[in-house]
């Protein structure tokens, strides 16, 4: 088993942290995992992305050209990864930040209004966890429970009071994606 995931968005949207939480969840459940950020000058104010590879063997390349899974938190990331996604793959799109629908029909595009859902929970910064929850609907190797445990185990102590809202965000994202999947013709 090997799965590659790219998470992309603006700097400040929690792209890198989201990927780390996923990496912790994979590690804590005994899998091999790599997390690698884009660390170039684009980090400063522009787009940021990270690649997470999860496998049950020694991981080779930490980077992937055509990922089977991706999260696009803004429009530039949607534009970029819709074209790069592997055929049959799943792209989670933050619907709150894009003004167009999907163009490809050989991939699954799951639209999630991450900002609105996060604001309903009471903290717009939870938007990355809403998207993460949605991603997990297409990543059976890692469960929502695994990510919850990873958050609990690795979130700095000063942020522990935020755990319940993070769990809520994961759950809402997962449930929203499930409803979208139900609409996909079998």
């Amino acid at each position: 088993m090997q799965k590659e995931i790219i998470i992309a968005g603006f700097g400040g949207q929690g792209v890198l942290f989201g990927g780390q939480v996923l990496a912790y969840a994979a590690m804590d459940t005994g899998k091999d995992v790599t997390w690698i950020p884009s660390y170039g000058p684009e980090m400063r104010g522009g787009t940021a992305n990270c690649t997470v590879v999860i496998a049950d063997h020694e991981i080779g390349s930490p980077l992937v050209k055509n990922p089977p899974l991706a999260i696009a938190l803004n429009l530039p990331s949607f534009d970029k990864y819709e074209s790069l996604l592997a055929a049959g793959g799943t792209l989670i799109v933050n619907q709150s930040m894009v003004d167009r629908s999907a163009q490809r029909n050989d991939i699954h595009v799951i639209m999630v209004p991450c900002n609105e859902i996060a604001e309903e929970i009471g903290d717009k910064k939870l938007m990355n966890m809403v998207a993460m929850g949605a991603l997990l609907s297409a990543l059976p190797e890692v469960s929502v429970k695994d990510v919850e445990k990873a958050l609990e185990g690795h979130l700095p102590a000063r942020h522990k009071h935020l755990l319940p809202k993070n769990y809520e965000a994961l759950k809402r994202g997962f449930e929203h994606a499930q409803k979208e999947w139900d609409k996909v013709p079998a």
Binding site: Q20, M27, D32, T34, W35, I36, P37, P62
Partner: peptide, 10 residues
């Protein structure tokens, strides 16, 4: 190389 410097692994 920079990739190993920047990446995270268990």
């Amino acid at each position: 190389d920079g990739a190993i410097g920047q990446m995270m692994e268990p």
